[in-house]
Amino acid sequence: MKRKILVNVVGVLLAFLLGAVVMLVQGYNPLETYYRLFEYSLAPGKIAYTLSKSVPLVLTGMSASVAFASGPINLGQPGQLLMGALLATIGGLYIDLPPLLMIPFLLILAMLGGALWSGVAALLKYWFNMSEFITTLMLNMIADFFTYWAINYPFFEANANHPQTPFIAKSGWMPEWGNFNSSVIVMVLAFGVIWFIVNRSTAGYEWRLSGQNSLFSRLGGVNISKNYLVVMLLTGALAGLAGGLVVMAGPHRFIKDIGGNYAWDGVMIAMVANSGIILTLVFGFFFSVLQTGSLGMELITAVPKELIQVLQAVIVLIVVAGRGYFETFFAKLEARRKMRERIA
């Protein structure tokens, strides 16, 4: 356990060191830059905002983590997020309920939207054995164009300069207290449910087993194709939930590029977290710290905030490579120690 934490921390530090070298080469002061980065996102007044911004990252990250840990290579989070956001927006445009009913209703719609889109990929695999790895990627592009069409034509706000929908009903806005958005509560609930399902339920045990060794679990009596469908729908729903919350907590309407880079960041978070649910939460928050802080970093030190995108990818590559490398390293140490004991 300690070793695991050590590997992650060392990997992140190495990535920061590389980032510092890049900054030095370009004539920036790395220490000040990093200080501003963390100051802007972790200051007492700011941390609630950073937490609120971590919601889509953690949710898409969990979606990818659960999928990768259980076998299906669901890379469709970007598309599922958009479809979830679209369905929640449509619900918010045409239906108005009291907030206590409205918010759960829209969240369910968002999850349905995401599950619908991952369900397409799941059924293509189930019926025709088409690899979800490629189909989800293609469905991402299709969802991208489809939602863009939807906000250009049927749900277009007249008089707007660029494609967007009108505001959703006020009752569907996630309540906000200062910088703290209540979407964080939804995220924590989702985290609790997913953690429980994966770590404490029979279904989660079967998923993890199939992810490790699908043949073994099938011989052990696990219904692989049923589990596959359930995992795909669940992970799609998680990504869709992220999309719904982005709309309901943020601009309260569907604007162009609303999905941003959340979903691909989520995939990266799942990879760097080695598909562990708790680590996904940790890294999701950490990536949010980087992204929120990048704004302050750019304001004060003039280092472009795009640097953070590079840093994220470098963190993923180094931490994952380091994990493998350290494991072999420790195994070697262990073997050498045993050898010495034998000789003695």
Binding site: I73, L75, W264, V267, M268, M271, P304, E306, L307, Q309, V310, Q312, A313, V314, V316, L317, V320, A321, G324
Partner: peptide, 20 residues
């Protein structure tokens, strides 16, 4: 390192680096 993770990481690195 796992080729799949390397590939995804590299693709996102490429997007980030060219944008930067």
């Amino acid at each position: 390192m796992d080729e799949f993770i390397t590939g995804i990481g590299l693709n996102l690195f490429s997007v980030g680096a060219t944008t930067y």
